[in-house]
Simulated assay, not measured.
Amino acid sequence: MKKNMMVFWICLLLGILSVIYAVMVHATGSGTAFFLIWIGIGIVVFLFGISVYMEVWKKAPHPIKIFAGMIVCIGLLVFCIVEGCVISQMHADGRGGLDYIIVLGAQVRKDGPSPVLKYRLDKAVEYLNENPDTVCIVSGGQGSNEPWSEAEGMARYLQEKGIDTARILPEDKSQTTEQNITNSKKLMKEGASVGIVTNNFHVFRALQIAKKYGLSDVCGIAADSTPKYLPNNMLREFFAEMKWLL
């Protein structure tokens, strides 16, 4: 019984931490409801702790135990494979001399780009300064919680950082990564070499999308991301990748 009690208190602590993390993610004002999944995880972990304490698992029929165990193992295997693929592209640095780079949009605010987008733009500035012949496509439409299009906000930021306006091509209609790629492709010359600038956790899926829509000479350029929100971004990317594959 002491062992069961210990498991219960550990699960209670993990559940509380998960809910606190959900509040932290929600406080970023990202405009999405994905933070709710952390509340769901906290509830599931807490209920698991209660079931262990009350020895519900021991009372379950053996076939149910086997089936549940198989589901958990398969789920963990799929999760590890997908996250391994995501991690494999988190340090992508592209290559020099690309014809274009595409900066994928993210939330803009009246006071400037969101932290996620600022990481992408700073990486783009770094690349553009090192490769003066590369043209930058800033891609992103205007969301309901944004003062102007993401493309406009990104173009302003790049100009403030000293990037020549002639090197910036705005694409201000996209609402998804797929649209970022397909709409940006229309602005490029045929057969151009392209770098996709996005946050490290997003590079793997972005490259999949780019290749599906005909960008054969493409590479990823990984920007940083905020460490404390990386667990949320990695989990969200897992579900996004599963949706993409299915």
Rank of each mutant, 00 (worst) to 15 (best):
F67N: 07
Q89P: 02
I64M: 14
P61M: 04
P63S: 06
G96D: 14
V56R: 12
I71R: 05
H62G: 09
K58A: 12
I87S: 07
G75M: 01
D93C: 06
L77H: 03
G69T: 14
A92F: 07
I101A: 06
Y100Q: 06
W57D: 04
A68F: 13
I101Y: 03
E83M: 08
K58W: 01
G97H: 05
C73W: 13
G96P: 02
G94I: 00
V82W: 00
D93A: 11
I74H: 01
I87E: 07
G75C: 06
D93L: 05
L77V: 15
L104G: 04
Q107A: 03
H91L: 10
E55P: 03
E83T: 08
K59C: 03
L77R: 01
M90R: 14
I87D: 08
F79R: 04
E55S: 13
I87P: 04
P63F: 11
P61N: 03
F79K: 01
G105Y: 03
G69K: 12
H91P: 00
I102H: 00
A106E: 06
G69F: 11
A92C: 10
I71F: 11
G97R: 09
I74N: 02
D99C: 03
G97W: 06
G69A: 15
L104R: 01
P61Q: 07
G75Q: 07
L77Q: 07
V56Q: 09
V78P: 01
L98I: 04
Y100R: 05
D99Y: 00
E55N: 12
A60E: 07
G75S: 05
A92E: 12
L77P: 11
G96I: 00
G75W: 06
G97L: 05
D93T: 11
Q107M: 08
A60R: 10
C73A: 15
A92M: 08
I81H: 00
I64H: 06
S88M: 07
Q89T: 12
F67W: 14
K58L: 14
C85A: 09
G69S: 15
I81R: 05
I64D: 04
G75E: 03
I101R: 04
I102W: 01
W57L: 12
I87F: 12
Q89E: 14
A60V: 13
L76W: 12
L104S: 01
A92G: 00
G105A: 02
C80P: 01
D99S: 06
I102C: 00
E55T: 09
I74L: 12
K58I: 02
G96Q: 13
M70V: 12
A68E: 05
C80W: 14
D99N: 06
A68D: 02
L77G: 11
C85W: 08
P63C: 03
I66H: 09
G84R: 03
K65H: 11
